[in-house]
C-alpha cells in the first residue's frame, strides 16, 4: 500500500521558510548583489564581477584591519578565558556569597555597550578621569587619545572588564555541576589541588569552556561600539578593527560595492574561524588514540 501523501504539510513549514528567507537569506542576497556591482546611487548599477573581492583581498588596508582584529581577539581570549576560570574557581560554592558574587559578575553584562565605551572614555581621561589622572600623577605618561599602546591597553582593559564575567558565569555553572563525591574521591586518593583542577574540574568544564571561547571569539571579532565610542578607531588607524573599517567604507566613503564584498568576506572569516575553533576543541586526540 502506498503511504498517504499529504501536501498540506508544506503549509506547516511555510512560516519557517518565510521567516528564514526574510531574516537571513534575503538580506544576505542583497549584500551579495551589491558586492558584484558598482553603483553611484540613484539606482544605477554596473556589473563588477569579482573586482571588489580581488581589490579587497589585495588591499593593504584590509590586511591591516584583519591583522588588528586577529590580534585583538587573540589577546582578549588569552586574558579572559584563564582569568574567568580563575575567578570562577575562587567564587564560593555555597552560602550568602553566591548571590552576591553572581550579581556583581552580572553587572558589567547589563550595561549597554555604548555606555561601557563612554564610562571608559571618561575614566581614562587625563584631566578628569580617575584612571587617567591617577596614572599621570603616579608618573606614567598615559594618554589613550595620542598613544597607540595606551589606546590598545584601554580597549583591552575595557573588554576584559566588560566580558570576563560571561566566562566566569559559564565556568561557574560548569563547576557547580560537578558532584561533591568527585572532590571526596580525589581527597581520599590524596590528589593535589592542581591534580583536582587538571583531572576533574577542567575536563568537567570543557564543554562550557568551548561555548565560552566561541562566544568570546565571535563577539570580540565583531567588536564595534566600545572602541568606536572610546577612540573612534584612532589614534590614526591603530584601533580600526574590521567592523569600524567596514562602517567607514560603507557610510563614510559610501563605497557600497567594496563594503558589501568586505561584509561577505568578514562573515566567511568568522564562520571559518569558529568552525576551526570548534573542530579543534571538540576533537580530543588522547581519546581517539586510546580507542584505536
Amino acid at each position: 500500500m502506498d503511504k498517504p501523501f499529504n501536501n498540506r504539510a508544506w503549509f506547516l513549514v511555510l512560516p519557517v521558510f518565510a521567516l528564514v528567507a526574510f531574516s537571513a537569506i534575503l538580506p544576505l542576497m542583497t549584500v551579495v548583489n551589491y558586492s558584484v556591482q558598482d553603483t553611484f546611487g540613484s539606482n544605477v548599477f554596473f556589473w563588477a564581477g569579482t573586482d571588489w573581492y580581488v581589490q579587497l583581498l589585495n588591499s593593504e588596508r584590509f590586511h591591516q584591519a584583519l591583522g588588528r582584529q586577529l590580534m585583538f581577539s587573540a589577546i582578549v581570549l588569552i586574558i579572559q578565558i584563564p582569568l574567568g576560570v580563575v575567578i570562577a574557581l575562587c567564587m564560593p560554592r555555597k552560602g550568602w556569597g553566591v548571590p552576591v558574587c553572581l550579581v556583581l559578575m552580572a553587572l558589567p553584562l547589563l550595561i549597554p555597550w555604548n555606555v561601557v565605551g563612554t564610562i571608559w572614555q571618561v575614566f581614562g581621561r587625563g584631566d578628569i578621569g580617575l584612571l587617567g589622572y591617577t596614572l599621570n600623577r603616579m608618573g606614567f605618561s598615559y594618554n589613550y587619545v595620542n598613544d597607540v599602546g595606551d589606546a590598545w591597553l584601554t580597549i583591552i582593559a575595557m573588554d576584559v572588564w566588560h566580558w570576563t564575567s560571561l566566562v566566569v558565569l559559564l565556568a561557574y555553572a560548569g563547576l557547580r555541576s560537578i558532584p561533591e563525591a568527585y572532590y571526596h574521591a580525589a581527597q581520599i586518593d590524596g590528589a593535589s589541588r592542581w591534580s583536582v583542577f587538571r583531572l576533574i574540574q577542567l575536563p568537567k568544564m570543557k564543554h562550557v569552556l568551548i561555548i565560552a571561547v566561541l562566544l568570546r571569539f565571535m563577539d570580540s571579532f565583531m567588536i564595534y561600539t566600545e572602541p568606536f565610542v572610546l577612540t573612534g578607531g584612532g589614534p590614526g588607524n591603530s584601533t580600526t578593527f574590521l567592523s569600524i573599517d567596514l562602517v567607514k567604507l560603507a557610510l563614510g566613503q559610501f563605497d557600497l560595492g567594496p563594503a558589501a564584498a568586505m561584509s561577505i568576506v568578514y562573515f566567511l572569516v568568522i564562520l571559518l574561524l569558529s568552525w576551526v575553533f570548534y573542530t579543534v576543541m571538540t576533537n580530543d586526540p588522547d581519546r581517539q588514540g586510546g580507542a584505536a
Binding site: 558532584p179 563525591a181 568527585y182 571526596h184 574521591a185 581527597q187 581520599i188 590524596g190 583531572l199 576533574i200 577542567l202 575536563p203 568537567k204 588522547d286
Partner: peptide, 19 residues
C-alpha cells in the same frame, strides 16, 4: 583522610573523566 589509607566507592560512578 589523606594521611590515612582508605578507599571509598560511591553510588555515583566517580572516575577521572579525562583519563
Amino acid at each position: 583522610v589523606q594521611k590515612r589509607n582508605v578507599a571509598m566507592v560511591y553510588q555515583q560512578f566517580i572516575n577521572y573523566p579525562s583519563l
